[in-house]
């Protein structure tokens, strides 16, 4: 594995928790899940749906990240750092503030 492809994969992996947490924030903003104590468990499995969407977004971002890592590794590294920091912040924020 080259440094470029590893950096690309690291950036793409940072998209997964970022997209996941962003979906949670949107869900909470829209009113969240129906009361789980009152309704029977939904056949739609929200966890897998969110993970699936996050993985698709991460896979779609690998091309641009690879080109960025090819053109400017320093900038690509900065982007990976920023994405990871944002993903961590958003994950913790949704855990603290969302139900």
């Amino acid at each position: 594995m080259t440094a470029r492809s590893a950096l690309t994969a690291a950036s793409a992996f940072a998209i997964v928790p970022l997209a996941y947490a962003a979906q949670r924030c949107v869900e909470v903003g829209l009113g969240g899940e129906l009361d789980p104590a009152l309704v029977p468990p939904s056949p739609r499995i929200a966890l897998f749906w969110r993970v699936g969407v996050s993985l698709v977004l991460a896979a779609g971002s690998t091309g641009p990240f690879y080109r960025l890592a090819e053109r400017s590794p320093a900038l690509a590294l900065r982007v990976a750092e920023a994405l990871a920091a944002l993903a961590f912040g958003l994950l913790v924020a949704q855990a603290v503030f969302a139900p």
């Binding site: 940072a14 949670r24 993903a87 994950l91 855990a95």
Partner: peptide, 15 residues
């Protein structure tokens, strides 16, 4: 939700 983060951050670290 936090588990999704734990796994992905471990992979970011490894890569």
């Amino acid at each position: 939700h936090l588990a999704v983060g734990a796994v992905t951050f471990a992979w970011i670290g490894l890569l």
